[in-house]
Design a protein around this nucleic acid. Structure first.
Length: 473
RNA sequence: GGCCCCAUCGUCUAGAGGCCUAGGACACCACCCUCUCAAGGUGGAGGCACGGGUUCGAAUCCCGUUGGGGCUACCA
């Protein structure tokens, strides 16, 4: 694709709901093509349907793309602001006879379809020479014979018999242009060279081509129809049915670079098996012609894997920088005053190597800041009350911790020797201490955590645990 | 129903007629490492939808079947 013409692509979402990962993948592929050709990436908001478009969704699209690092060179354009352009095209299409006015109602059309047993509009108004105007839609006069071929970069040539294409509406009876017209007019106006979009648009492409030709002798762009992303039931991802909004993943603590990497691999892969790709490598190596033809399942498990890898690859200071929004929001189980940044920093490296999303961080450090401090009854029961030695271990540790050097090696040695008294392995001995001080049988390494928690809190919590244990006896 | 697209482990994929006894990754299982949990390491199980061709030779090419999907609006 190292052409002499300037490559211009566009991402053209409709602002009718959450911006989902399928749209992000389409945007990414467009963006990669633009970047690898030193071309331009345009953002165009397809809001010709005023009833369904809302500003909040446009905002969501813009925010999500920015967050992902998919930058646009021109736009965002809004089709709702470009009516003059469409009207001009409509005037020309009326003048050259490619469209005609139609006042059939849906009911009438359906009744005739039922009677004829053939689908599609029957061309009732084709030769009635109705005067175009309010209350009448405009339909495109599709040739009765011949074929329209879509030359598709990922699918090859796809042929449509014109006889199977109905005379479709391009302008509503209220004068608003329809998507299929607006897209063509805009793509021509914006000199788009590559139309890269999801496969669901393939059936309307011959219509677009017909309009294209009707508008004059204008070279067609290259088309590329990407396989759709599907859910576990292998249905096209839908913003209504599937919770896959890009912003949700951001809020859950996924890294944009991990999402980009994963999305890039959904439908394309380098042939040497590499999976961790930098954006630079994607730009260099991605090929539209190599994109797969079949639908791909958006597998959150696999995304998790990539996210974990990317989190672990972060430099320590970068990790805490990215973590901050997730530990200083108002959903966290501690107050601003209770939070101690230094304590978090001290444990951060240990957290970094065991999480898959940044949203998991609070759970790992709530034992430090959360107050009052609560231990689940069942957990307490299992780790401390289960047998006699539970409390004994707590007592022994309590007295040894009181005047030990409070560092992880000495603390560990103490627990090992306590374990020897009771003939228990360290893995068993640590459990009651862990639950008493950290509130959970699983979590960060114990001794490092105790050091950061501090001697006084550790002793106090062990005292509390002993007290509760004695009371419940 | 009509038009169109698609078909390699459960999932994402490598594979452009001999390099395929089909490779990698996620998930799964086992073991190792280990203060818990992870992470990491090693190993394992698991696939060319089916049937016909073409060819000396087919996961790869052709046809059909089956299965899945998309579209079928005065939505995009």
């Amino acid at each position: 694709m190292t052409t002499t013409t300037n490559v211009r692509v566009r991402f053209a979402p409709s602002p009718t709901g959450f911006f989902h990962v399928g749209g992000a993948r389409t945007a990414l592929y467009n963006w990669l093509v633009a970047r690898q050709n030193n071309g331009s990436f345009l953002l165009r908001i397809e809001d010709t349907d005023r009833d369904r478009s809302e500003d909040q969704w446009t905002e969501g699209i813009v925010n999500a793309l920015s967050w992902l690092g998919i930058t646009w060179d021109e736009g965002p354009f809004h089709q709702s602001e470009r009516h003059a352009l469409y009207n001009d095209a409509i005037t020309r299409l009326i003048a050259n006879g490619h469209v005609y006015a139609c006042n059939c109602t849906r009911e009438e059309i359906d009744a005739r379809i039922k009677a004829r047993q053939t689908p599609g509009y029957d061309g009732f108004c084709r030769d009635r020479n109705l005067e175009p105007g309010p209350g009448k839609a405009l339909r495109f006069r599709v040739p009765d014979s011949g074929t329209t071929t879509v030359h598709d970069l990922v699918r090859g040539d796809v042929e449509f018999a014109n006889s199977t294409i109905e005379d479709f509406v391009i302008v509503k009876s209220n004068g608003d242009p329809l998507y299929v017209l607006a897209v063509v007019v805009d793509d021509i106006d914006m000199a788009i060279t590559h139309v890269i979009r999801a496969e669901e648009h393939l059936p309307t492409t011959p219509k677009a081509i017909l309009i294209w030709h009707a508008l004059g002798d204008i070279p067609l762009p290259a088309f590329a129809h990407l396989p759709v992303l599907v859910n576990e039931k292998r249905q096209k991802l839908s913003k209504r049915r599937d919770r896959v909004a890009v912003e949700d993943y951001r809020d859950l603590g996924y890294l944009p670079e991990a999402i980009i990497n994963y999305l890039c691999l959904l439908g394309w892969a380098p042939n040497d098996g590499r999976e961790l790709l930098t954006v630079e490598e994607m730009i260099l190596e991605f090929r539209l012609e190599e994109v797969n033809k079949s639908p791909a399942f958006f597998d959150e498990k696999r995304l998790d894997h990539f996210n974990g890898l990317y989190i672990r690859a972060l430099a320590a200071d970068e990790f805490v920088r990215r973590a901050m929004p997730f530990i200083s929001n108002d959903q966290v189980p501690w107050t601003k005053n209770q939070f101690d940044q230094e304590q978090f920093f001290a444990l951060a490296p240990l957290i970094q190597e065991r999480i898959t999303t940044l949203g998991e961080i609070p759970n790992y450090i709530k034992f430090l800041f959360s107050d009052p401090y609560v231990i689940e009854e069942a957990v307490f029961e299992k780790a401390i009350l289960k047998d006699e030695t539970g409390v004994e271990i707590l007592r022994a540790a309590r007295s040894a911790f009181a005047d030990a050097a409070f560092d992880h090696e000495p603390l560990k040695d103490i627990l090992i020797s306590i374990g020897e008294q009771f003939d228990k392995k360290l893995s068993k001995t640590q459990a009651p201490i862990r639950v008493a001080t950290m509130g959970s049988p699983v979590g960060l390494p114990l001794f490092e955590s105790l050091v950061v928690l501090g001697r006084s809190k550790v002793l106090a919590r062990i005292d509390d645990a002993i007290l509760i244990a004695e009371r419940s006896r």
